[in-house]
Design a protein around this nucleic acid. Sequence first.
DNA 1: AAAAATAACTTGCATTTTGCAATACGTGAG
DNA 2: CTCACGTATTGCAAAATGCAAGTTATTTTT
Lengths: 134, 134
Amino acid sequence: MKIENKKRESGCPITYGLDTFGDRWTLLIIREIMILGKRTYSEFLEADEGIASNILVARLKHLEAEGIVEKSRDPENRRAFIYELTKKGRDLAPILIEIIIWSGMHDNRPFALRKVFNKIKRDREGFETALRAE
Amino acid sequence: MKIENKKRESGCPITYGLDTFGDRWTLLIIREIMILGKRTYSEFLEADEGIASNILVARLKHLEAEGIVEKSRDPENRRAFIYELTKKGRDLAPILIEIIIWSGMHDNRPFALRKVFNKIKRDREGFETALRAE
DNA sequence: AAAAATAACTTGCATTTTGCAATACGTGAG
DNA sequence: CTCACGTATTGCAAAATGCAAGTTATTTTT
C-alpha cells in the first residue's frame, strides 16, 4: 500500500484520480461492492480475477483511508466485517459506467460480457440510480 | 510494457478497461494528448508528473498496440514523431471527464486545480466535443 | 470453558515492475 | 560528414506483486 500513498501533488484532477484508484485492483474492489453487491473480505477474495489476500488488505485499508469505503461489523454474521461505499465511493459510479460503455464499444474478444453494457444502453440513468442505491 | 499485456480474460468490461489503461501513467499520457494538446515524446517527457523515459516508451508502445494512439512522422519537424488518438482513444473522453468531475467534487487539497472542472460544469457537452475534435 | 470453525489478516520469499541516470541510436540541418 | 535534436535502450537499485503458508480474533459447538 505504498504506491498509491505517494500522491503526486500536481493539482491535476486526473492525477488525483489515478493516485486514488489508478491501479490494477482498486476499481475491481469497487466493482465487487457497487455492481456485484459483495460486502466482505472473503467475498472479495472469490472475485474472478483472483486478488491476493495481502494486496486485498492493502487496497481495502487504502480505500478506507481515502474515505471511499467504510468498515463495520456485520450485524448478521458477528465474526465478519462489512465494507460499504461512502458517498465519495458511490460517486465513482459514473466512472465505472463510462468504462463499461467504452469496453462495450471496443472489446471485441469473443468472450467479452455485454450484459451490463446493454443494460446501460437501454437506461443509463436508471442503471446509475440503482448502482448508487444498493 | 509487461503488466498491461497480461490481459485477464474474465470478460468483465471493468477488467478490460483496467488492463488497457489501469496504471499510474497511461491515462496521464492520454490527458497530455487530449486535454493539453501535446503530441510528441519530448513533450510528454516534460509533463508535470515527470514520467521516466523508459516507462513512457513502454506505455506508448502499449497504447499503439491497443489501437488507442497512432504514431507517424511529424511533417513539420521531420525528425520527430507525432502521437495522435484514434477513435478508440478519443472515446476515452467521457472517462476522463468523469474522473475530473469526481476529483472536482472530492479533492479538497488547497492546490487542487478546478479550472477544467468548472468549465465542464458550465457546458459538459461542449467540452467533450472540443476534446474529441482537437 | 475448551475445541472447532470461520473470517480476517500477516509473513516470507521469489518474481516482476518501477524509477532513475547514463548512454545509444537515427535522422535531418548546416 | 558531423553536430544537434528527438527518440529509445540499458543497467541497476528499490519497490510492488503474487503466492503459499501461517496467525489472530471472534463465535459457535460440544
